[in-house]
Design a protein around this nucleic acid. Structure first.
Lengths: 206, 206
DNA sequence: GTCTATATCCAGATAGAC
DNA sequence: GTCTATCTGGATATAGAC
């Protein structure tokens, strides 16, 4: 009755994913230290002992989540930059997608919280800290370049592009924080409130 | 050689303040659980045992910090609202002061982090949770009222005032988060990037 | 692969000497 | 008031049975 190696591997991967998924919810809410490995195991529907067959330690789970978050975020940012689209529309698309992501699911807001905690805390695992220091600048740099391109076209306000990029990402992170606190009650503000930080006013109307 | 009761009380208060001050730095960085009472005692320059003469438990210190943060924040918000000043200038003043507070010291950003954690975490002490649920809405409501008054004057954009208030505070919290991560490297964006979310464009120039 | 039981460690809080 | 020493509980990680 032995299953094929492929099926075994698939089940193993699914278990791993389940652990990561539930760990994210707990870490984002309570932080690395206050999250008990027994809670993760319970939510993932397995015994505490079995969890150690998938990850060496709590820190390894945490680090894996940080790694995944940056991989996806940076790939999305670079993908956005590569689109064949006017800079101003790229900014609008990014804000729309990000706010939608925050509004609709818990996952995105959790990822933001996790990264914020990891960036601040002194007890962040070394490997997670390394990933953070190497990769956390990418989205800022991407948005700054897009804004600069828009300034050359005259569609983006002439403020310092680096400062506007900080305003862009801190606004998003602030909204994610808000979502993490208020959960389902959260209603995102109209996207146009945010875009007005960056877009030159149009003389014509829509 | 017995000191006066007044002097004794004063020294006692100063010790208490020192504990609270150092605890805030640690809690904001690492959270309630990951902060060791021995670390707080060490930074405050006293033994672990002595700390228990000033506070019953770690949770009590935490709750006291939350209480103080809301007292000051809500007093400041209500004070701002009571000023004899056009609504638009109140918003500008508030943003200027808040951003300056974030930029210049660690204290303000730490308070924001503490409140964010407390709002999210499931292990937040019950009393702290009570304070949060009773008082966290005040600054949002104040800003919303000021924005509404500005809309009646025509100086504030006609977006939903509640949504703009959320945009206001999440932008501030996002900046505080950023400061908490980047510390001394942090440079605040030009205040005008933020005000453009709320202010109607002026036809005349300055 | 999966579970239960346990060794080990560490932090919060207390007791008691000075 | 202040310290050191200790009790106690709880969480991580491991060992070992099935």
């Amino acid at each position: 009755m032995s299953r094929s190696p492929e099926l075994n591997q698939k089940m193993r991967d699914e278990r791993r994913e389940a652990i990561l998924h539930h760990a994210l919810g707990l870490f984002a809410a309570n932080g690395l230290h206050a999250t008990k490995i027994s809670d993760i195991a319970e939510r993932a529907g397995m015994s505490q002992g079995l969890l150690y067959h998938y990850f060496r330690s709590k820190e390894e789970i945490y680090t894996e989540l940080i790694r995944g978050a940056f991989e996806r975020m940076n790939a999305a940012a670079l993908g956005l930059e590569a689109l064949d689209m006017p800079p101003r529309e790229k900014i609008e698309l990014a804000l729309t997608q990000l706010v939608k992501g925050i509004e609709e699911g818990e996952e995105f807001a959790r990822m933001v919280m996790l990264n914020a905690q990891a960036g601040i805390s002194e007890v962040t695992p070394p490997e997670a800290r390394r990933i953070l220091s190497e990769q956390s600048g990418v989205p800022y740099a991407v948005v700054e370049r897009i804004l600069r391109a828009g300034q050359r076209e005259g569609t983006i306000k002439p403020h310092d592009a680096g400062e506007m990029s900080v305003a862009f990402w801190t606004a998003i992170k602030g909204l994610a924080l808000h979502k993490a606190v208020y959960g389902a009650e959260f209603r995102a503000p109209d996207i146009r409130i945010l875009t007005s930080m960056f877009f030159n006013e149009e003389e014509s109307n829509g």
